[in-house]
Each structure stands twice: as C-alpha cells, then as structure tokens.
C-alpha cells in the first residue's frame, strides 16, 4: 500500500519534463492530437464491426429483405425492419417540422431583437431545458400531452381528416403524433441554442452595412444576418435530427409500441431505438437478438445517409449562396 505514495514525487518530476517537451515540441502535440482524432475513427470502426458480426444470423436469414419486410413476430421467427424505420423517420420529421421554425424564430429573437437582460434569462432557461433527462419529458408527456391529444387535439384533427387523411381515426393519446410533439420539445432547445450562437457570430459590419443601406431592422436580420448564419442553423437542425432519430425513453413511453405502418399520425407506431430498448433484455433465441442488432445497423445506416445528405445540401447551398 506504500507504493503509490513513493511514486508520487518522481511522477510529478516526470510530468514536468513531459510538459516542457510538449510546450516546445510540435511533433509530440501532433502525435497526441492525432491519437485523439484516430480514437474517433477507431470507435466508429469497432462499432460497425461489432454490429456487423453480431447481426450475422439475421443477415443470413433475411438478407436485404429485412429492410422492407413488415413482419415482426418473435414466435414465428419472422423479423422485418420497415415498420420501425417508418416510425423512426415519421416521428423525427414531425419533430423537426415543429421545432425548427419555432427554434429558429426564438434564436432570432434572442440574438437580434430581445433586450440583453431578457436574452440572458431566456438563454439560461433554454440551456436548462436541454439538460433535462428524456425520461422526465416522457413522464410529463404521459400526464399532460397524452390526455390532451386523446381528448382535444385528436378529435379536432379527426374532424378535418376528410381534407387531411393522415389525421384520421380514433385518437388513443399515444401514437406517432404524440411522439413527434415530445421529440419537438426535446430538440427545440438544441435548435435555439446552436442557432443563437451562429447568429451571434455574425459580424457587426454585416448588420451595419444593411442598416446603412436603408434596410429596416427586420430586413437586415432576414436578408443579411440569417443567410450569413445559415451553416450554423443547418448544423443545429442536423444535430436535432440526430437526437430525434436516436431518442429512446421518452418515445417508448408515448408512441404506443405497435409495429404496424399506419397512414394516420394518430395511430400507434414504433421506432428502432424503442424496440431495441424494449425487447433486448428478454429476446428469446439467437435470431431475435441478431435481428435487433441488425435494426441497430439499419439505424446507423439511416444516420449516415441523412448526414451525407446534409453535407451535400450544405455544399450545394454554399456554392450558390451569397454570404459565404
């Protein structure tokens, strides 16, 4: 037990030499930074390799058909991913549809229009909101949002379902719409806080130039500031999308967990993350377990495709764009 104490002093000395070398030594810093960066790549590769090898049973049994099969029957040993992919995409899209306009609007207000004191307080609240654990949002949704959708929003939407058929059918309270709304609430703070940072980073000259040309405050914001911050705002949207795609707990609590593809947003659904959380611990049989891991791989693929799409979109808009 005396060993750690006796090492203490030399260790500090060694540390001193090391730091000195680091200060003067670009190669050392380079090596360390390289290692840090390589670890990201290594983690991703290990992750994919593990998912690939663990899902072998299911891949051999179903092949690519897994992606568009709608069966999920652990007893009959038939597994398909489509209802889960559908639920994941629909809830995430709904979430962004709600949270992006609201979030960008709030960010514009906080960075451009609000008085500094108001902005500080609101920004603090937004950051607080971003730190709330998802299970708490789930519980809140069960007690407030679910009854609201069942008794008020659902029946109201059902009335206009002749025009919008995706609002048809009985509202159980839980379902795709409820999951989308709770995801919107959860991604909202991300959109605000990153968009706000991006807007704040726009140089003063940009605003002043627009104002000096006779633009109103809103015109300056809309035409000069927002286009300049476009990349940051897009970044906030993709980060939110990533969170929405992978969110598990809150969604499981309100989506109804029914692996069917329903045309109505009021119907129950299921997401990839939810089914894994629900069935992983009690999965019976190798094929069931392996299928759940294959679902993870599918989620990973979806994330990659969406991220790649996002990159392309940014590239395209940057070339055409005026500001940057």
């Amino acid at each position: 037990m005396s060993a750690p104490a006796s090492i203490g002093v030399p260790a500090r000395k060694r540390e001193g030499v090391f730091l000195q070398r680091l200060k003067g030594g670009d190669p050392v810093a380079h090596a360390i930074a390289w290692l840090a960066a390589a670890s990201v790549l290594l983690l991703t590769v290990l992750l994919v390799a593990e998912l690939w090898s663990q899902s072998a049973t299911a891949r051999h049994a179903f092949g690519f058909g897994f992606l568009w099969s709608t069966d999920w029957d652990p007893n009959a040993r038939k597994f398909g991913a489509l209802p889960f992919i559908y639920g994941t995409l629909v809830t995430s899209a709904l979430a962004l549809l709600i949270s992006v306009p609201l979030g960008v609007g709030a960010a514009v207000f906080l960075s451009e229009l609000a008085r500094p004191k108001v902005s500080v307080v609101l920004t603090f609240l937004v950051e607080l909101l971003a730190a709330v654990p998802s299970v708490i949002f789930g519980l809140l949704a069960i007690f407030t949002l679910v009854p609201l959708v069942r008794d008020v929003i659902g029946p109201a939407l059902d009335k206009i379902s002749d025009v919008f058929p995706f609002f048809a059918g009985p509202a159980y309270g839980v379902g795709l719409l409820t999951a989308g709304i709770i995801l919107a609430v959860m991604t909202f703070p991300f959109v605000i806080s990153i968009s706000r940072e991006a807007l704040l980073a726009v140089p003063r000259e940009q605003r002043e130039a627009a104002l000096s040309l006779g633009a109103t405050k809103w015109e300056a914001t809309w035409d000069a500031v927002i286009p300049f911050a476009r990349l940051g705002i897009l970044g906030s949207i993709f980060l939110s999308l990533a969170r929405a795609l992978g969110e598990t707990m809150a969604v499981t609590m309100v989506i109804g967990n029914d692996p069917k593809i329903a045309s109505s947003l009021l119907a129950p659904g299921y997401t990839i993350a939810s089914v894994i959380a629900n069935e992983f611990t009690e999965a019976t049989g190798d094929l069931h377990l392996s299928s759940l891991i294959l679902l993870l791989l599918a989620l990973f693929l979806i994330t990659i495709v969406i991220n790649a799409g996002a990159r392309l979109l940014i590239l395209a808009t940057t070339r055409q764009g005026s500001a940057k």
Partner: peptide, 20 residues
C-alpha cells in the same frame, strides 16, 4: 399468436413495464 416473452400482437397498444 402463441406464447413468448415478446409477441406479434393482433391488436392494442404496447407500454413499458407493469407501471406502463
């Protein structure tokens, strides 16, 4: 349907745990 720990339910909504 049959018997298992997870099923292909003909109808209904799923919730997590007894409390769900």
């Amino acid at each position: 349907v049959g018997a298992n720990t997870s099923l292909n339910w003909p109808v209904g909504l799923g919730a997590k745990g007894n409390e769900g």
